[in-house]
Every structure is written in structure tokens, then in C-alpha cells.
Design a protein around this nucleic acid. Structure first.
Length: 427
RNA sequence: GGUGGGGUUCCCGAGUGGCCAAAGGGAUCAGACUGUAAAUCUGACGCGUAAGCUUCGGUGGUUCGAAUCCACCUCCCACCA
């Protein structure tokens, strides 16, 4: 039997990772032994984004403490759409698309948990497997009968939707909770799974599952929700000017991922260290103390970025991100060798190639996506926001040619303080 | 099926025949200050160097002129059956 770390809950609480839990004393008691727990991830896109990182890492924390994690991929629930705290009814995706997404998610969640031969080896399950063959009548009689509509509409997660003018909720979405509850009950039956974790928005769905499991199997199971990750400035966590931060490196490069964390506000960074890293409390307090004493630029952001990038993209991905970041932000562009530049290209720095002999700067800005239109490109140049190979350019008619490039082949274009693009003259 | 209310530029939201590329707020972007922070100030924020062009759910119409009026279609919401 795997040894169990009985301080797990205390650690999670120290990290601020516990939002709500059912019967705390009994759950603490329950977790003295190795248990099976699960967390669901619905396929709403072809990749998870960093919003799912907290639950994924908590699954990992549970496994490290000796419990068996199940990552549930919502092949069934993803077809319905969770209405919890969503202000609008959502469009249904087609079944083929959902299938593809399910496969990607399986691979992604697998990276965060261990599959070994020990008692607490992780597993990935798909709720489509036990939902697809349940016919409507059976479902309504055996599952639906356990739910009271009046208690369902009391749930905070759908209440505001029901009360809000101009929006409604279809029966399909309303029934989502029942499907998710059915998952918990099934996983209890099949795996003796006794704990479900999820975001704070999942509380209603989780307690629904707990009730159903009690009614169908006369068993007590537990729920624990994690806090919503919020930022001190009130803006939404996980978005940048260029969009969502995805876990898939094809959608968000390792470099962009690293940069996202580097840009964490001071007001949030120590909290995020607790949420997103496995550093122990003493270590994190030491970092905080040191930053305070230093009065200058804090170290916490770079530690956070390093740790999280390593967790998600591995040591290689981290090194690639670091190489680009250092090259670009140290300001020593002219010292880069041809190999360095090539490596930046391979590391996934935003880049493009051209076989032309010369291009206007305005054109380059637009082609590279650094500016949305010629008009914006010109505005950036006039505002002194553009530099090429480290030098500000304020000439609207500037033209780039290979000769002027680094090593005769590359131009590093910078717009604003943080956006870069590598232009390679392939001709 | 009936009745009523809606669909405005990324979001919210004003605009009911010309003064509207369309108020205001938010978000976003740039500059200054900085630490690739925060706060603050300044500027930008449909496309076009410009003349100008293309937008206000869709199509068609009325008009010198429509986001604004009319018809049909479509989607959403509420209530009634």
C-alpha cells in the first residue's frame, strides 16, 4: 500500500487552494488512507488552457500524497455544455469535433499525473463510455428520479441565469448537472472513487453527485472545490492581448507561456507561487522576504515562470523559453551569433521568412502580426514604438534589406516593450 | 401557435431620417515614468498616406439621403396557449 501523506489537506489550505469542502472533519479522516479521487475536464476546445492548471496540479498533489487520481474527460458532458455561472446558452459542437478534442485532452491531462504499477497509478476515463448506452427512459427513471427540480433551480450556478433578463436556459444545459452527478455515482461504483475536486463553479454539480451517490449506493462521498484564480486588478486570469494562454505549445509557445508568468503582477505573484508550484512553504516565504528586502526587482516572477514552464513544458521547453527571453530582453542583440539566431527560430520565437530582397518596415509589421493594419503600423512607428535590431526607427518609409540584418540574414523587430518578431531572409 | 420586447463597431451600452464611422464606460494598444511591475498622465482604438471607402442580424424596398422608416427572413428573450 502506498504511504499516505496525511498533511495534504493542511498543505492545500496553506496554499489557499481550498475553497469549499463537504464535511471537513470526516474528509480529513477519510484522507488518512489512500483514496480514489477525480476531476473532470470538458472538451470545450482543442486544448486545455491555464485555467485548468490548478485542478490538474491538485490532482498531482493528491497523487504525490498517495492517492489515486482519475482524470475524467467529458466526452459526454462536453456534448451538452455546462451552464454553471455561464451567462449565455452555448452553441453545441459537432460530435466529430468533440471526439478530436477528447483525444487531445486525454494526452494533455496524462502529462500531469503518473501512470505506474503502484496502487495509486492514475487513470484517464471518459464519461462517454458509461453514458452513451443509457437510454432516455432508464436515465429518467433511475437517475432523474433522484433529482428535485426545485432544488436544482436553487443552485447558485444556474440561479442568476434563470433570473437574468434577456437570457434563458435550455433543458439540455439544465440537465448537465444530472449527467455530471451520474459520473460521480458511476466512478464510485467502478473505482470506489470517493472524492471529486473541481473549480469553485463546480460546487453545485459536485454536491449533486454526492447526493446521487448516496441515494443510489448509500455511500458517503466527498467534494472539494478550488478557488477561482483571480488577479488583483480585477481582469480575467489567463488572457493576454494575444488571447488565451493554452497548455498546448502549438497554440501558445513555450516562450509565450514563460512570458505570461514573468508578467505576473507583484500583487499576485506570491499567491500564484502557492497555486502553481510545488515549492514548500518555507521556500516561498523566503522568496517573499528576500524580495521585500531587495526593494528592487523581485525574483518571484522569474521563479514562478521557471517552475510552471518546467511543469508544463518540461526542462527542454523551459530552456528554449529562457534562451529567447534572455536574448531579447538583455538588449545585446548584436552579440547573437548565427547559431543563436537559428536556435531562437527553432525554439519557437515568433518568426517569419521572406525571399524578397527588400521590404518596407510598415509591411513587415503588418505581415508579422505586430500591427493589425498599415495604419496601426504607421502609428506605432510615429509613436516611437518600433525598433529594429535594437535601434528605434521613426522613419515611416524605412526599408529593410538583408545586408542591414544581423549576420546578414535576420532582423529582430520589436514593437512596444514586449513583442518581438524574427524576420529571416531566406533568399 | 399567439402577443410583446430585442439583435449597434472586442464587451456593455447610447443613438428613432441628414450635424453618425456612430455618445459614454470597460477592455486593449502605444508613449512618458519604471522592474518586461503597479499607479498616474498623454495619445490611439473600422479600412485607407489621402480623396474616400465599407459598417449598426440578413435580404429587398421607400427616400436626394437610413443604424434609424417599410416588407420579408433569421436568431434571442418574456408572457400567454
Amino acid at each position: 500500500m502506498t504511504a499516505v501523506d496525511t498533511n495534504l489537506l493542511a498543505d492545500l489550505q496553506m496554499r489557499g487552494l481550498v475553497n469549499q469542502m463537504t464535511s471537513p472533519e470526516e474528509l480529513t479522516q477519510h484522507l488518512q488512507k489512500s483514496r480514489v479521487l477525480y476531476c473532470g475536464f470538458d472538451p470545450t476546445a482543442d486544448s486545455l488552457h491555464i485555467g485548468s492548471l490548478v485542478p490538474l496540479l491538485v490532482l498531482r498533489r493528491f497523487q504525490q500524497a498517495g492517492h489515486k487520481p482519475l482524470a475524467l474527460v467529458g466526452g459526454a458532458t462536453g456534448m451538452i455544455g455546462d451552464p454553471s455561472f455561464k451567462s449565455q446558452e452555448r452553441k453545441l459542437n459537432t460530435i466529430d469535433i468533440i471526439d478530436q478534442w477528447v483525444d487531445r485532452l486525454k494526452a494533455q491531462v496524462s502529462a500531469f499525473i503518473e501512470f505506474n504499477d503502484q496502487g495509486n497509478s492514475a487513470a484517464v476515463v471518459n464519461n462517454y463510455d458509461w453514458t452513451k448506452d443509457v437510454d432516455v427512459l432508464t436515465f429518467l427513471r433511475d437517475v432523474g428520479k433522484h433529482f428535485s427540480v426545485s432544488s436544482m433551480i436553487q443552485k447558485e450556478s444556474v440561479k442568476q441565469r434563470l433570473e437574468r433578463d434577456g437570457e434563458g436556459i435550455s433543458f439540455t444545459e439544465f440537465a448537465y448537472m444530472i449527467l455530471q452527478s451520474f459520473d460521480f455515482s458511476q466512478l464510485y461504483k467502478q473505482y470506489n472513487c470517493s472524492l471529486q475536486i473541481g473549480g469553485s463553479d463546480q460546487w453545485g454539480n459536485i454536491t449533486g453527485g454526492i447526493d446521487l451517490t448516496r441515494r443510489q449506493h448509500r455511500a458517503q462521498v466527498f467534494g472539494l472545490t478550488l478557488p477561482l484564480v483571480t488577479k488583483s486588478d480585477g481582469t480575467k486570469f489567463g488572457k493576454t492581448e494575444s488571447g488565451t494562454i493554452w497548455l498546448d505549445e502549438k497554440k501558445t509557445s513555450q516562450y509565450a507561456f514563460y512570458q505570461f508568468w514573468i508578467n505576473t503582477a507583484d500583487a499576485d505573484v506570491y499567491k500564484f507561487l502557492r497555486f502553481f508550484t510545488f515549492l514548500n512553504e518555507a521556500k516561498m516565504l523566503a522568496i517573499e522576504e528576500q524580495d521585500r528586502a531587495a526593494q528592487g526587482k523581485p525574483e518571484a516572477q522569474s521563479i514562478l515562470a521557471t517552475e510552471v514552464t518546467r511543469l508544463v513544458h518540461g526542462e527542454k521547453g523551459l530552456q528554449a523559453a529562457l534562451r529567447i527571453s534572455e536574448a531579447l530582453f538583455s538588449g545585446q542583440l548584436e552579440q547573437l551569433t548565427k547559431e543563436d539566431l537559428q536556435q531562437l527560430y527553432l525554439d519557437g520565437m515568433p518568426a517569419s521568412q521572406t525571399s524578397k530582397k527588400s521590404i518596407t518596415l510598415v509591411q513587415v509589421l503588418v505581415d508579422s502580426g505586430l500591427a493589425k493594419s498599415n495604419k496601426m503600423a504607421r502609428e506605432f512607428i510615429v509613436n516611437n514604438a518600433v525598433s529594429v535590431n535594437g535601434d528605434k526607427v521613426s522613419d515611416l518609409d524605412a526599408v529593410l534589406t538583408p545586408f542591414l540584418g544581423l549576420q546578414g540574414e535576420y532582423h529582430v523587430i520589436k514593437r512596444g516593450k514586449k513583442l518581438f518578431h524574427l524576420l529571416h531572409w531566406a533568399g
